[in-house]
Simulated assay, not measured.
Amino acid sequence: MSFYSVPLPELHPSPGTLIAIQELTEEFPNPERIMVLALNEHAELWKLNLHTGVTERILQTNIPEMNLLHPVQIVTSPDGSVAAVSNIYGQRAAVYNLLTGKEILQLSRDDYHYDVSTYPLSFAYIDQRLILVHGTEWNRLDLTDVLRGTSLTGRPTPAYNNDSNQNTDEPDTSEHYLNYFHGKLSVSPDQKWIVDSGWVWAPLGITRTWSLENWLNHAWESENGSSIHNLWQTMDWDLPSAWISPDTIAIWGQVDEEMVDEEDWQEEGVSPAIILFNVQTGERMGVITSVPAFSTTSLVEGVFPHAQAGMAADQDKLFTWRYGLDLHVWNCSTLTCDATTTEVHPQLYHHQAKLFIGLSTDAPHQLLACEYDSNSA
C-alpha cells in the first residue's frame, strides 16, 4: 500500500492565484477529463481540466460583502452543472449555472452569530428536481427548487414561546421553535438523508440527521420531524465527515470515554475518534480509536475556530487529513489504519479521478496531486 505523486500539466491559460477548489463531478466521466472548479483571487470561477491542463473562465461572482481573504466554500450539484459559493463564515451566498455562466440565486441568512458556523449549503436531486438546502435564518433551513427558484418549505418562523403571536389570530407555532444554529451540511449519496453539524448554546456541537423525503412532505421536518436523530454531542461543530454508504456516515471529532467501551481508550478523558453512524436509525455502527486530533485554531485572523481537517471515503477506505500533518487511510471493515503519507496535504479527494489534490504553496496558481495504491506491496 503506497502513495505516488502524480505530475499535473501546467494550467493554460493561467487562472491566477487560486483560493478555493472543489471536485467537479461529471454525469458521464471521461478518463481524459479530471475536472476541478476553482475560485481565484479576483472572485472568478474557473473550470480546470487537470488531465490536459486546459482551463476555462466561467463567470465573475458577485456576492455582497464577500471577503476573499477569509475561508471560502464551493458546493457543487451532483451532476456538476450548478455551484453555490460563499464565505464559509459569511452571511451571503450565490448560486450559479456553470453551463451558461449565469447567476441563478442570491442568498442570505440572518446576521445572528452567522460568523461562528459554516453557511449551510448542499444540493440534492429529489423527484428529478435539483434542490438546494440552504440556511435562511440561524435556526432555519429551507429547500429551494433551483431551476424554478421556488421555495418548497414555506412556513412561518416560530418565535420562542410564541411571543410574537400573542394577542393575534396567527396559529401557535411555538412547538416548532428550534434552539439550534445550523452548520455544515452533507446529503447522502442516495439523496435521501441530510446531516447537519451545528451547535447550541454552551457552546456545544450537536450533529443531527433527518429524511429529505419527509421534509418535502412536512415543512417542519428539520425542526422537530419524526425522522430526526441527534447522532453526536461533541465539543466542536462543522465536523469533517464522509459517507461510507447511502445510510452510514463517518464523523471525526472528540468524544468522552463514556461513549465507547473502556478498553478502546488508552487514556481517560476526551479523545479524538471517528464514529460511524446509521442515519436511518441513529445507531452507532463502529468506532475508530487512536485517531489523531485536529487543530481548531483558524489560520486566518478574525475567523472563528473551526476544524483544520478534511475527510473522504471511497469504497471500504476512509481518508483523513489535517493541516500540516499526515494523511491517514483507514479500513472501514477492520476500523484500523492501513497507511499514512506526507506526500500531499490535500484540499480535496477527487472521487472520479481517485486523486488527492492540494494547492501548491510555492506556486498558488498550480495544483499538486497524489494517488493511493491499495494493491502495492
Rank of each mutant, 00 (worst) to 15 (best):
T136D: 14
T136A: 15
E137M: 15
N139C: 15
R140K: 15
R140D: 13
R140H: 09
L141H: 08
L141M: 01
D142A: 11
L143M: 11
L143Q: 00
T144V: 14
D145S: 07
D145C: 13
D145Q: 11
V146T: 15
G149T: 09
G149I: 13
T150I: 14
S151C: 02
S151A: 09
L152A: 02
L152C: 03
L152M: 09
T153F: 00
T153K: 01
G154V: 14
G154N: 15
R155P: 00
T157D: 02
T157E: 05
T157L: 06
P158W: 04
P158Q: 01
P158E: 03
A159N: 12
A159H: 06
A159C: 10
Y160D: 14
Y160F: 11
Y160S: 12
Y160C: 11
N161M: 06
N161F: 12
N161H: 09
N162R: 00
D163A: 08
D163I: 07
S164P: 05
S164T: 07
S164V: 03
S164R: 13
N165G: 04
N165Y: 13
N165T: 06
N165H: 02
Q166D: 14
Q166C: 05
N167W: 04
N167D: 03
T168I: 10
D169S: 11
D169M: 08
E170S: 12
E170D: 12
E170G: 03
P171E: 03
P171W: 03
D172R: 03
D172G: 04
D172A: 10
D172H: 05
D172P: 05
T173S: 04
T173W: 05
S174T: 11
E175A: 09
E175K: 12
H176D: 01
H176E: 06
Y177F: 15
L178S: 11
N179L: 09
N179I: 09
Y180R: 10
F181E: 10
F181H: 14
F181Y: 15
F181V: 14
G183W: 11
G183I: 05
K184P: 06
K184M: 08
K184I: 11
K184E: 10
L185I: 09
L185N: 10
S186I: 00
V187M: 00
V187E: 01
S188C: 11
